[in-house]
Simulated scan of single mutants.
Amino acid sequence: MDLALLRTFVTVHRAGSFTRAAQLLGLSQPAVTSQIRSLERQVGRPLFLRLPRGVSPTPVGNDLAHKVAPHLDALMEITQGDLAEESGNRTVHLAGPPTFTSLRVLPALAPLVAEGLQLRIALAGEDEGLAGLAAGHHDVSLGTLRPRDRLLAATPLWDEEQILVAAPVWQERIGGPQAVHTHGPRVLDDVPVISYDEGMPLLDHYWSAVFDSSPAIVPAVVVPDLRAVLECVTAGVGMAVLPRYLCGEALAEGSVAALLEPPVPPLRTYFVSVRAGTIALPHIARVHEQLVRAAAGW
């Protein structure tokens, strides 16, 4: 079976569109369509269902993708490699959320860069990072979403502790952490909320884990960077749920205070994800191993 046809097939499977696959491969859409038809004739079965927008793999197409994609990825890396790959110093394209990537991931990978590894970083949302990984834009993706695609392999990396914080003045106004323990979340109704996303995923996760309910709150401030959220909290704007690694220093200094100290703090697990089969490649293996090793000390 022609490897060029398989490469086109896997790209279409990941992209979900002939048009998008053509862009990724540098081919015309008719050429991609022709190659897929040729492969379908060889297989003897349809591989994709044509939809009004894009394509969806048939069961046969899914089965073929799961069988060949990991091996094809590894083979393409070998054929496109150079001497640098033998030492594991090829460029690694990594995607991850801005704050976690900046404060945890990049410092952890600094020793590898000093040894010659080249990094290209995409600060991206988690869905975007996994989509880019599946499409071949990234080699490694980090985030709290475990990929469902069997073509992606995920390793649990680290559990992030979540804390509900505000400036000390707000802690005094509500009567301290004991007030929340005694009266529940209703004592927080008048405290403005700061979130990095309109949907308030961190606050929603915290409310669900601690109060077994959903917050009936509209955020007062939405800013897409957790470091900016912390600055708003420190300035006395309101409350936010933040990871301990980000706000721990501010807590120690007393510039922010915990509004509640639950017996079991909510946690979010981060995963490091790669395309199945690529973990055997030296440059990706080095990054994966370094992150797992560093996370043990976080």
Rank of each mutant, 00 (worst) to 15 (best):
R41M: 00
R275M: 06
P168R: 05
V193P: 15
L133C: 13
S141Q: 04
Q35F: 15
D139Q: 08
A153S: 10
H288W: 11
H138L: 10
S56Q: 14
L260C: 13
L230S: 11
D204G: 14
E40D: 01
L109E: 02
L259F: 07
G61Q: 03
V287K: 03
E249P: 09
R41C: 04
D82Q: 00
R14W: 13
V264I: 08
Q178F: 13
E40Y: 06
A31W: 11
C232K: 10
P46K: 00
S38R: 13
R268G: 06
P192F: 02
D73G: 03
V140K: 11
P59D: 00
E172P: 12
G132R: 09
I121V: 08
R53Q: 15
A21R: 07
S102P: 12
A276T: 04
R268S: 14
V113G: 01
D149C: 04
R37T: 03
R90P: 05
P224K: 08
P263A: 08
A135G: 15
T58S: 03
L226C: 14
L75S: 11
A84D: 04
D197R: 14
A167T: 01
P57T: 02
A209K: 15
V12I: 03
L94D: 12
L260N: 08
A22M: 03
L267H: 13
E86H: 13
W298Y: 10
D149P: 11
A154D: 00
S141W: 08
V113P: 14
Q29P: 10
S28Y: 08
G81N: 01
D204M: 10
L72H: 01
A135H: 13
D139H: 12
V241Y: 12
R150E: 00
I217T: 10
L47S: 09
G297P: 14
L188R: 13
P192E: 00
F271H: 10
S34E: 02
I284E: 01
H137D: 05
A21T: 05
V264F: 14
P263W: 11
D189E: 13
P243M: 13
L157H: 04
G236V: 01
T269F: 09
Q29T: 08
A296G: 03
A95R: 07
T33D: 03
A95T: 07
D197N: 07
V237M: 11
F100G: 05
L112E: 04
L152T: 00
Q118Y: 06
E85P: 04
A69F: 13
S255H: 08
M239L: 04
E172H: 09
P98C: 05
A135L: 14
V180Q: 09
A250N: 10
H288C: 02
S273W: 03
S17P: 14
A31G: 04
A31M: 02
L130E: 01
P201D: 01
T234W: 14
V68M: 09
H66F: 15
P168G: 02
A154Q: 05
L260M: 09
A110H: 15
G297R: 12
R90H: 15
H183E: 00
D149W: 09
L157Y: 12
A166F: 08
D212C: 06
V165D: 02
R104V: 12
L24I: 10
D139G: 08
V60F: 03
R146H: 11
R20E: 05
G136I: 06
H205I: 01
A294K: 15
G54V: 00
R41G: 02
E261Y: 15
A74H: 02
L106G: 07
I279W: 07
